[in-house]
Design a protein around this nucleic acid. Structure first.
Length: 551
RNA sequence: GCGCCUGUAGCUCAGUAGGAUAGAGCAGCGGUUUCCUAAACCGCGUGCCGGAGGUUCGAAUCCUCUCAGGCGCACCA
């Protein structure tokens, strides 16, 4: 249990005791919030519980605070308790307790920050799921990094995570794509065929047609549209997978829409919807009555021409996912799809699953910039910067960091030049540099033959400067941070934490010397450095960027 | 017109489940290296937290209204 969690429990116990003394019901216990005050003099942790309880018992706040403090069991970890402001309860953590964090980190090394909070519960995260109709663009990159990082966070917090990509390979778009390649191919081998007017532009269509010519010359001329669709989708998907791989993103499962049709699951699902009484026919089409829940209009499942809509397949897909007994299902989508989510949630309710199980995480769009000027992304003009080009240009590390460092609610300006800069303007290097510096210190220590002793043997009492204690405390809350991200899905917080930790370390580094004449002090500080190193590596692993030894 | 997201320092953004004196990076100015990497550190900020009401011991944060920007409102996927 982390320090923060322990303090929360201590305050909870004290509050419960106070409630009993006041003859209040236990149900009146307000939620216990422990937060980290902005100002050092307010202690390591602080609680506003007195305000909440006083309100409930209509009592004086200060008096309530005093009562609670009186009931606080003085455990080892609490050095001092103060009532400050108008009733905040401020907790100062005992140094010994902070030192123990170093021992813990040493033990867990690069796994520090992980916990068994999730109790191996199953979580499904579906992301990217880009239609295989063309190469990935930067927007997909953002979804990929958010999804992959989130998966790693859940994993670190003790969940069993599966990552899934839904391949939409059925329907008009897939057909159109196949037709484009067919036309391009036939023209190449001298058989005239009109290119579809609304067809896909872009060099990749031509590349694929050329590949076919190279593979079999004129052999495929009569193989039919179905062949071209399957070939094209497979090729594009391979390309997508490779790009994602170069971005350290791997999926546990690629789920193809057509398997739902082939196995009859779509029809099965529609039968169930019918049985539940939420379908009706109108204008020759079959509709789902999503307005019965929270949608602004009903949705078509089967068109007049007897062709299923995308929605029909997707409902069947969600039914399948819901039946797999996950404790949480997260769908990550670009914000341009937000209009779609209510109908899906309605459909899930109709099928009979409780609304909370399925959660959507929407991320705002990405503006690709170069030196502060927006790069136009027109498919029509062919001026189209793919995700692959971005990764090639700025590298996977910078790209991942940039995509993850902003809250998903806000549009992201991705500046290619900034991401490439090896300077202080670029936060990626700032955090990696901190890591490299520590490695350098450790190398020096080794060269000087300084004994490499464990934290339990070192005289950690020598770490007594405020900067050192603050650093230790910062390290102590990493597991809490990771757990909290599983609740709010705000992966950018990890990047913030990393920058803050790096900043604290850089600052410390400039002010104090780790390796000095004082052997004991040196060893204690080396222990602290190693702990920072492990914490950083642990986070690097989660956001999947390199931890360079040298820069 | 309706719905979702956003509006915080010159710029890009944090601001943890309402909390104490609103923060960081960049840009700008000035400084720091006989010593573990100067890709670093230190100092310098008079912000109608878009605006107006409201809830509360307490609001950038919650509610209502309003203004501005982005996105979405298909028998496309």
């Amino acid at each position: 249990m982390s320090i923060k969690e322990k303090v929360r429990n201590i305050i909870k116990e004290a509050t419960l005791k106070t409630i009993q003394e006041k003859n209040l019901s236990k149900d009146d216990l307000p939620e216990i919030i422990v937060e980290i005050p902005k100002i050092d003099s307010h202690g390591n942790l602080s609680s506003n519980i007195a305000f909440l309880l006083a309100n409930m018992a209509s009592e004086d706040i200060l008096k309530t605070a005093e009562n609670i403090v009186k009931n606080i069991e003085r455990e080892d970890i609490v050095e001092k308790v103060e009532i400050a402001g108008k009733g905040f309860i401020n907790i100062f953590i005992a140094k010994d307790c902070l030192y123990k964090v170093l021992c813990q980190i040493e033990e867990e090394s690069e796994r520090y920050g992980c916990s068994n909070f999730g109790e191996e519960k199953k979580v499904l995260i579906e992301f990217v799921s880009a239609n295989p109709t063309g190469p990935l663009h930067v927007g997909h990159g953002r979804g990929a990094v958010i999804g992959d990082t989130l998966a790693n966070v859940f994993s670190a917090a003790g969940y069993y995570v599966e990552k899934e990509y839904y391949i939409n390979n059925v329907g008009k778009q897939a057909e159109l794509l196949g037709t484009c390649v067919e036309a391009e191919y036939k023209n190449l081998i001298g058989i005239p065929m009109d290119y579809p007017e609304d067809g896909y532009k872009g060099d990749y269509i031509k590349d694929l047609a050329e590949k076919l010519v190279k593979m079999g010359g004129k052999r495929y001329q009569d193989w039919g549209l179905d062949f071209f669709v399957r070939f094209t989708v497979r090729e594009i998907l391979d390309d997508i997978k490779n790009v994602l791989l170069s971005f350290q993103v791997r999926f546990n499962r690629m789920f193809s829409e057509n398997t739902l049709y082939d196995s009859g699951k779509v029809d099965e699902c529609i039968d169930i919807l019918k049985e539940k009484g939420y379908t009706y026919e109108k204008d020759g089409a079959l509709w789902l009555k999503t307005t019965a829940f929270n949608d602004d209009k009903d949705r078509v499942l089967i068109r007049e021409n007897n062709v299923h809509t995308y929605f029909a397949g997707d409902v069947a897909y969600h039914k399948d996912k819901l039946s797999r007994e996950y404790s949480k299902i997260i769908n990550i989508l670009g914000a341009d799809h937000h209009g779609y989510t209510p109908r899906m949630e309605c459909a899930c309710e109709i099928i009979g699953y409780q609304p909370g199980l399925l959660e959507y995480l929407l991320y705002q769009l990405v503006n690709l910039m170069r030196d502060g000027i927006q790069v136009s992304m027109s498919t029509r003009t062919g001026e189209y910067i793919t995700l692959q080009k971005v990764i090639e240009e700025v590298g996977s590390d910078a790209a991942r960091f940039f995509f993850v460092m902003r809250k998903s609610d806000v549009p992201l300006d991705f500046d290619l030049e900034l991401a490439k800069k090896k300077s202080d303007e670029n936060p990626v290097y700032y955090v990696q540099y901190a890591h490299a510096r520590i490695c350098s210190i450790l190398r020096q220590a080794k060269e000087k033959n300084i004994e490499n002793i464990s934290a339990s043997e070192a005289n950690l009492d020598l770490l007594s400067f405020p900067e050192e204690l603050n650093l230790l405390f910062k390290l102590s809350i990493l597991p809490d941070e990771i757990i909290s991200i599983t609740k709010n899905l705000e992966t950018h917080r990890l990047a913030n934490y990393l920058v803050e930790l790096a900043s604290m370390f850089h600052s410390y580094y400039a002010k104090y010397r780790v390796i000095s004449e004082d052997k004991e002090l040196t060893m204690a500080r080396l222990c602290m450095c190693k702990a920072v190193l492990f914490a950083m590596r642990s986070i690097f692993k989660i956001i999947a960027i390199q931890a360079p030894d040298k820069m």
